[in-house]
Amino acid sequence: MAFVGGKQKGGWVIVVSIVLAFVLGIIPLPDWLEVWRPEWVALVLIYWVIALPHRIGLITAWIIGIAMDVLDGSLLGLNAIALIFITYIALNLYQRMRMFTPLQQCLTILMLIGSQQLLIFWVQTATSQNTPQNLMFVVSSISSALLWPLVFVLLRYWRRSLRVL
């Protein structure tokens, strides 16, 4: 609420990017690629948290998470709590993350998405849901970290050219 006076523009850009991330997240992939599917929604969300921490926060993360749960048909709240978790960390880290070199950013993303996957795994186990038998579920954090520079550059270009404040 510190920015009450400031004009908030370009909300549609954020919405469109999130919807695109949703689509990328459910688009059918071959089986061997499926475990490598990056966490598109989490990546886009982290970008917007770092770029616009005064607009994108925990409530946005929760709404996106609920939508993702419905989209996946997973337990309602599973992705929501995971996204809230990483959004909280990103909100605490955003000033540092803006200063990081790309490599440092990638490593941070690796840790963030990795902890998100672990949290999801933990909740799935606790609620006796379907759980993977091996550690392949953390693989998506690696692909997410590798794709982070691309997402970052694209979204930054988009944000600047469309003047999202």
Binding site: G25, I26, P28, D31, R37, D72, G73, S74, T131
Partner: peptide, 13 residues
């Protein structure tokens, strides 16, 4: 029209 993106389940829409 869709498939669960969770690689460890088999659900379709």
């Amino acid at each position: 029209i869709g498939e669960s993106s969770d690689p460890f389940t088999k659900r379709v829409l």
